[in-house]
Each structure stands twice: as C-alpha cells, then as structure tokens.
C-alpha cells in the first residue's frame, strides 16, 4: 500500500509539473497546448548534447535545457500564437499539435531514432521506503510541484504583472484596456509553461533512463489529463490532478498488473478522466435534483390540480 503511494507520488509530481505548464498557458491565453511534451523532449536532447557531447556538467546541461524549453515556448508564441489572436482558439490548438510534430521530426533529424542516455547528476544518493528506491530528483519533482501548485497563484497576486496574468485568463481584452501589455503576458506564460515542461522532462529522465524521440509526450498526455482533472484553470488543481493520476496509475499496475494486459494503467487514467468530465457535466443537474426533491419526477399532482 505504502509502496503504491510512494511510487504514485513520485510519478504524480512529474505529471503535476507538466499539468502546471498546461494550466498556466490555458489560464493566460485560453489555448490548450499539445506541444509542450515535445518541447520537453527536445530540451532533454539539448541537455544530452551539452553533457555527453560538449562535456559540460549536468547542472549546466539542465539549465541549458530549461532555457531552451522556455525559449522555444516564447518563440512559438512570438512567431505564431501572437498572429492568431483573432483566430478561433481551436485553430491555435491545432497549431500547437503541428509544432509538436515539427519538434518530433527535428529530434529524429538531429539525434536519430536510437535511444540516448543522459547520465544523472548523482547515482549514489538514494533512500528506500517500503522497498521502493527513492532518488533525490524524484523528491525534488514532488516538492517543486507542491510549491508551484500552491504557491504560484499567491506569488502572482503579489506583483502587478502577475495580477495581469491572472486577469488575462478572465478577460484578455479588458486587460489591455487597463494598460497591461497583453503580448508580454502571453509571451511570459508560454515561456514559463514550456520551461516547466523542460523541467519535468529533466526530472523524470533519470527514472526512465533513456531519451528517445517523442519520449516526454507520453508522460505529457497524462499531465494534460491531470490538468483537466484539476479543472484546467486551477494551479492547485493541477497538482492534485497529477498526484491522483500518479497514484491511480501505480495502484493499477500493482493490483491489476497480473492480468498481463499492457497499457492497462493508461486505461485506468483515461477512465478517471472520463468520470471526472462526466461528473462535472452532470454535477449541476444532480445538485439541482438533490436540492429540490422530486423535481425530476413528473408532477402529476400539480398537473391534476391545475386541470
């Protein structure tokens, strides 16, 4: 049981960081991004390039990866999203899919299809909880997700520009009319959101062990699901969503693994997503019926009285 919890929390932290990036971009610009998984992957390749090819220490490689991710997110906003301001948000979503595929092709082009390995910063430090080996970066992921999930919103409220980011989510047009430079708001959220993807990819890589093209996208999809489970606009919700899906995933592979069906854990994750979405859609109706008993039943008595 504890084992499931520990494993779930470790994965959940990663999903939560991806989810935070998604929520940040969605809140700030109203666009759901599908590109951030690939941004994370290519950032990781960049870290691999800096560490394995150039020979820089891991920490520099990691910083370079996060910087590249943020740069890619910012450049994407500056070159494309900005020009789509008057377009249907769905068109911009499709654009993010295209950007993701472009990055995937770039990964194949520059690094080939065979998996690469990025040496983690430390191999020797770890501790064991209930037979689960826990590494420092896994703890770092969880702590970061926790801090960002619950601290980012109040941190944003403290500065005027941060307040502008929160307000832009509610009404981008009105934000410009109070004098907040909207283009700087969108540039910032895209950069930071993408930077978070780079960070998440870095923190999960040592656990997976190898980098291959498209590698972070699989994790990112669960992060996306976590963002949706958390309500898509709530940063704490993104953390909770990530942890819930992480635990559900580890529980399903622990208790349902014996069925020998591959991909069963994804089915569990997507089932949770489905239930949450359906629940949210039907919640107002259910609440209404609970508040007014018999509202759903045909009101024969009043009809009869009226007749």
């Amino acid at each position: 049981m504890l084992q499931v919890l520990v494993l779930g929390l470790m994965n959940g932290g990663i999903y939560a960081i991806f989810a935070l990036g998604v929520v940040l971009v969605y809140r700030g610009t109203g666009v759901l991004t599908f590109a951030h998984g690939e941004i994370g992957t290519i950032a990781l390749y960049f870290a691999y390039f800096l560490v394995a090819k150039v020979g820089l220490p891991w920490s520099i490689g990691a910083l370079g990866a996060i910087a590249l991710a943020a740069l890619l997110g910012g450049a994407f906003e500056f070159l494309f999203v900005r020009r789509m301001v008057n377009a249907d948000p769905v068109s911009t979503v499709v654009l993010t899919v295209g950007f993701g595929l472009f990055l995937l092709a770039a990964e194949f082009f520059f690094f080939g299809a065979s998996p690469r390995n990025l040496e983690p910063p430390t191999k020797h430090y770890f501790f064991v909880i209930d037979n689960v080996v826990v590494r420092p970066w896994q703890v770092a992921a969880l702590v970061l997700a926790l801090v960002l999930g619950f601290g980012l919103q109040s941190a944003l409220r403290r500065s005027d520009f941060g307040l502008g980011i929160l307000a832009a989510a509610q009404d981008p047009a009105a934000v410009r009319l109070v004098g907040v430079p909207l283009s700087r708001v969108t540039l910032t959220v895209w950069s930071v959101g993408a930077g978070l993807s780079g960070l998440a990819a870095l923190l999960v890589e040592p656990s997976v062990g190898v980098i291959a093209p498209g590698y972070a996208s699989e994790l990112f999809v669960i992060g996306l699901a976590a963002a949706v489970v958390g309500g898509l606009t709530s940063l704490p919700g993104a953390f909770v969503g990530g942890v819930v899906l992480g635990i559900a995933q580890s529980a399903s592979s622990r208790y349902l693994g014996s069925f020998g069906v591959s991909g069963l854990q994804y089915i569990v994750v997507l089932t949770i997503l489905l239930v949450v979405l359906l629940g949210r859609a039907y919640a107002p109706e259910v609440r209404r019926r609970l508040a007014t008993p018999h509202a759903g039943a045909p009101s024969t008595t009043t009809a009869g009285a009226a007749a």
Partner: peptide
C-alpha cells in the same frame, strides 16, 4: 476605459481590480 458590459475581473477582489486599474500609474 469603462468597457462595454462593465467588464470587471470577476475572480479578482475589488482591491485587486483597482490595483490593475492603476497598472500604469504604479
């Protein structure tokens, strides 16, 4: 500006709305 439909920011507090209004003054 007093935009059409009195667009205040609904999820921000009254004071936060005013703080944003004073964005360029600040």
């Amino acid at each position: 500006h007093v935009p059409q439909g009195r667009q205040v920011f609904p999820d921000l507090t009254v004071e936060e709305n005013l703080r944003l209004g004073a964005y360029t003054l600040r």
